[in-house]
Write a protein that binds this DNA or RNA. Sequence first.
DNA 1: AGAATGGACTTTTTT
DNA 2: AGTCCATTCT
Length: 785
Amino acid sequence: MNVPIPEAAPLPTVREPAPPSADDTRRAEELIGGLNGKQAEAARTIDGPVMIVAGPGSGKTRTLTHRIAYLLATKTAWPSQILALTFTNKAAREMRGRVEKLVGGADAKGLWMGTFHSVFARLLRREAEKIGFSRDYTIYDTDDTERMIKLLMERYSIDPKRYTPRSMRGRISGAKNQMVTPGEYLSLANDPFEEVAARLYGPYNEALRRANAMDFDDLLAWPIRLFEQHPDTLNSYQHRWQYLHIDEYQDTNRAQYLLAKMLAAKHENICVVGDDAQSIYAFRGADIENILSFQKDYPNAKTVRLEQNYRSTGRILQLADAIIKNNRDQLEKKLWTENPEGDHILLMEALSERDEAQKIERKIRDLFVRSGHRYSDFAVLYRTNAQSRSMEEALRRGGIPYRIVGGTSFYQRKEIKDALAYLRLVVNPHDDASLMRAINTPTRGIGAKTMEQLRAYANAHNAPLWDAARHPEEAGLSGRAAKAVGGFAEMILEHTNQSRNLLADEVSRNLIQASGLLQSLRDENTPEALVRLENIHELLNAVAEFVEGGEGRTLSTFLQEVSLLADIDSLEEDDNRVTLMTLHASKGLEFKVVFVSGLEDGLFPLAAAAQDPKELEEERRLFYVGATRAEESLFLSFARTRYRFGESQAGVRSRFLDEVDVEDVVMTESGRAFQSKKGRFSMDGRGGGSGRSTKYGGMDPHYYRQSLRDEPKMPARGQDAGRRVVYDEGVLPIVPGVQVEHATFGLGKVIAMEGQGDRTTATVFFPDIGQKKLNLKFARLQVVG
DNA sequence: AGAATGGACTTTTTT
DNA sequence: AGTCCATTCT
């Protein structure tokens, strides 16, 4: 297993730049010589606000890189005065490498590059005391956060079934990155869910503070508060970072926007790069308005449009454009390319997800042999992580090396999280979430009853659980329980003391040894346990490797950096394997051959998104992002049935395919031109639905044929058991794609069918009402034909 | 206290 | 189909 090692650089010190000489200027011009006119213009504009609106494959990263090189070469700024904020650590790493290549590693040393989160996490380390935290604060991921919320809900007797910790976390997170306070949120709340979230919000913040912990949103919210409360601190960072670069600006949220604004306020040397058409993180609070209104925030801003695409073939761009033009609100931009038209985009139709995966696998094998591509030139993209499984199986069967980005990455594994909990506790014993995880893993006789008492004591004293664990007798424990808890606390303390004299990796080794984690896995003596054991050793090696990297690389920084790693960060370019990942993870990457799979309505776009025009537009942008990852060949695929919740479900092909209204771009496997079926159903509101064919009884002809074929022979080979054809008064089958009428909801279109017998339900989309799941036993659906 | 069993629920996407 | 949780059994 390849374990990602985080990087960490100390905050750079401030130096004053020297005026450029004629030589410097000449050198700088040389550096940007390879850019096209517009790119060079953007790179050369180093004073004042600049917005680079850049389509996919237009060389925006290249432009940004050269701009930074230009700043360095002209000596307008020292490396330490340049801050570049990227979307992932990987992007930062790559950009740093490129700048170093351009101007020389030594000249680029001290450049500050990273994600918003990692940069401000480091800033907070330095400034922690000013806001009442210690520099060794723990960073909570969503898991830890939900754990804390769940505890609070127990304390306040809130029904976790109705108000799930996850939904509460989502709402609190949303409020946080909008910089809405608990009080404000409570007054804004207009449904019971928001009300409960608002009530939990304040206590949740207090719990985090007691635990000396920050969640992801805090890493942005706290710096803002810090800057507001300490103008001198803000001032010093404004001075430190005179040139601000922000990549993927369309995906910044409110807090990130405010931070950028604060830092740039003094010099206004802010350069943002983005593409509104690639905004795909609204669900996380990203506000597309930030880029749309940049011109309003900085009236003297210069806007440069990079519209020439260097990546993809003409056909790929035509397809991407055909989809995205269905969206409204966009910054004006017209992509073009000098690249050849390229091959047709192939649309592959599969019977099942298994079949789909197999078709893709065969295609990869075929192209691998015929085109001389490497495996790393291929990427298979999908909407949800769950879809990776079938693909994985097919590739494994075919003997094709692959790697999955995301899903459960190394640091998300249970055994690693367990081990990390111990390490975190040694650094920050007040970390309640880690204490709860570690205290009885492996089991040492501390059960629910004992924990309840510890919690009661902590709550009563408004103190972290650690205080209770230190004084088990005072917390009302006795005998075996008290001894077990006391022993645990002793173990943590002992290693905290060790860490004063020993290196982080030695302490970690000793601690994990003492924890009994290794022993319990050894005792299990199963192949799985052995792998887990190995993983923990890998983690310890990663700690050692990190610590070796230099000063300031303590266990505490290791833990903080690890929390900020993204799945995509671990992707290595020269690893010769097919890449499997979600469409979201593919942002910013490119591959010679790309497969966009699972193009079914309800999956892509997701059923939930299809009801909300805004979300539907985001799904469309996601398709746009996916399609434009491809350089040479693009394949689209969908499956007629797919397993969901353990049941096979029939589906219809994605509405996005029906938006493809360009000729000679997409082809089917039979070699024929793809016929979009745009406008056949009136429900999507576009293209008027006059074309419903009476010949097929209102059914999608595709399903009409399918149902004809299926009628005589029922479930063959268990595989088909999932395709249920249900008869309505013996006339027309209700299958996905047909128009139906409901007594109260009116006309709708069947999206999917599931269940059998009395449990048969239809998912029906009603234009006016939205999507409904109806049990056929109760709902009298009439097929309209 | 801890293991075993059965039932409910799940699939958006993630720094 | 797999995971998480609650309940029950040891």
